[in-house]
Design a protein around this nucleic acid. Structure first.
Lengths: 329, 329
DNA sequence: TTGAAAGCGCTAACAA
DNA sequence: TTGTTAGCGCTTTCAA
């Protein structure tokens, strides 16, 4: 009679099947030469009894943790949360498929102790940065540590593996579509300049809007800033407002509606980013649409490739969709 | 000359210091008898060279992972995200303090494969459920697995360790404060009944509102539902609306404002939950305020206690604040 | 108070 | 194709 409380090991499996534990190990990992028949026998048995190899032991032997770190700002705004949530889901899904799990680390501005912790304690084989700042201490730290990592979003730092949507092309395309609509004067209302993506969007705007008269209200970091920008734009006499993201657009729309401004009659509105935050808003807003989950999946699969020692592209750009709605009709 | 690329081990430390690795191990863990002086010497040295013990090796020897699982719904609504975010921050902070890290698992309704993965692969020593449903398969699963776990929120299942705010007392208190304001007819607008907390809030409402005429519009799951409920309440002739959460309140407020309903003149409004979603809304909304981060901290510290084998209280209730603002003046 | 030695459960040369 | 054996880096009896 076996002790049923004892956790099983590959030794037990080996004994039970009358083979060596190496063979069991090889059957599970699929590495090394092994007879197809033997392997099937082992796998079937393992499956039947629900055996799962101990990850600590495997990790110790291979010096790998089979964990990756997912690093996000602990103080991120409401508006970024659903992006991170979807993106993380993509990361988790791909990681699981490749037998890894996701350890979470929170950074707060320049305080990257949450990242350092999991890296220095050797809890992860690599790291995904959910966000990148203009001068990102996390990137500097990871480069120095020589740990595999990929950043979601773009960075100006050379030699950093990154996955992003093609914001420049997207914003430029949307802006030029707006331009075609015979607008006279356009305001861009934008957020925090320390985020790389915001600058990219601004550049896309400039590229796409071309010779049309325009101005920019950036660095809006709260509702009051946004509403002030809207008022300024109104008194400038613009006939179109383009918002750098969904959060801004949300407040621009409610401000305009509250002031009884006709959209799109008096003012057209478009957003460089779309999320569930904008759903249900009337009139529906023209916007750029991305797939954050795909971003997470791609980032994770690239990271796992790096961990395996494979070559990966330094920059991967994913697509976008332009969604034309009533707000720019 | 040492090989500088080699990762250090306690053996190296021991050799360097002319002691045994057992002593080094004991110095680090603080377990077992050890001379204070020796210990200080070891600790100082370790600190100086920045040595961190290998967690896999320690885990293997102790059969612990020093990871805990943080489980959240992958499909959670926008409105819950900031709660989870803050709560998770509390979990991470406390875990780090006790030398553990946080592995993330996503569940989707009844699909708890994300939870099963990390549990069955022995990647965590315990689990925190960020949310509990009325009939929660995650709870059933964890009970059966006999893994330590705590749920944030309340559950009717017996013998489950839980940490929650005292919603019943809070909602009852706020409702009775409203009652004192001589309202004639109050509507409760509520959300998903499958969430335990919503039912608790409703009960608190009933307890506090007492003999004042009232009715309830529950199960609102989107903006349209909420707006319909507001219209119904208006045509019922209520002079007060109490919202079950911030998300609902947000849309109630915008609907009322859009319809030109005077708040609090014609209708008073209060919310059973407050978050950054409500900030900036005019007039400011009377609400209940909780501290999600404290919830996470408490949940984590209780879980770690359980993992250590200590006794813990089955139910822990944390406080709340009633914030009176202009919307009920 | 300290040390020697035997694991923890797996992987990976190297042999067979 | 399979098995033997020596680790991976730490903890924990047991002895000194």
């Amino acid at each position: 009679m076996e002790d049923l409380n004892k956790t099983l090991t590959i030794d037990d499996i080996a004994r039970e099947l009358g083979i060596s534990k190496t063979t069991v190990s090889r059957s599970i990992s699929g590495k090394g030469r092994i007879g197809a028949e033997t392997r099937k026998r082992v796998l079937d048995y393992i499956d039947a009894i629900g055996f799962k190899p101990n990850p600590q032991a495997r990790g110790l032997a291979q010096s790998r943790s089979y964990n990756i770190g997912w690093i996000i700002p602990g103080d991120s705004e409401l508006s970024s949360l659903s992006f991170f949530q979807r993106c993380m889901q993509g990361v988790i899904d791909v990681a699981a498929k490749k037998d890894s799990d996701v350890l979470i680390g929170a950074v707060n501005g320049n305080n990257i102790s949450g990242l350092k912790r999991i890296v220095e304690n050797q809890k992860v084989d690599g790291v995904i940065l959910g966000q990148s700042l203009r001068k990102d201490p996390a990137i500097a730290y990871l480069k120095e540590k020589k740990l595999p990592f990929v950043v979601v979003g773009s960075t100006e730092v050379k030699g950093v593996v990154q996955v992003d949507n093609d914001h420049l092309a997207a914003c430029s395309e949307l802006s030029s579509i707006i331009r075609m609509k015979n607008v006279r004067f356009v305001s861009l209302i934008g957020g925090d300049r320390s985020k790389v993506v915001n600058e990219t969007r601004r550049k896309g705007f400039e590229a796409g809007i071309g010779s049309v008269k325009h101005n920019e209200y950036v660095n809006c970091s709260n509702v009051a800033d946004i509403e002030r920008a809207v008022e300024a734009a109104l008194s400038d006499g613009v006939d179109c407002i383009i918002c750098e993201d969904d959060y801004i657009c949300f407040y621009v729309m409610s401000k305009l509606r509250r002031d009884g401004v006709d959209i799109p009659g008096r003012i057209k509105v478009a957003s460089f980013y779309n999320s569930r935050m904008l759903e249900g808003i009337q009139p529906a807003v023209t916007s750029l649409q991305y797939d954050p989950m795909e971003l997470g999946e791609k980032a994770c699969s690239i990271l796992l490739d790096m961990i395996e020692g494979n070559e990966v592209p330094e920059r991967t750009l994913l697509g976008y969709e332009v969604i034309l709605k009533a707000s720019t009709q």
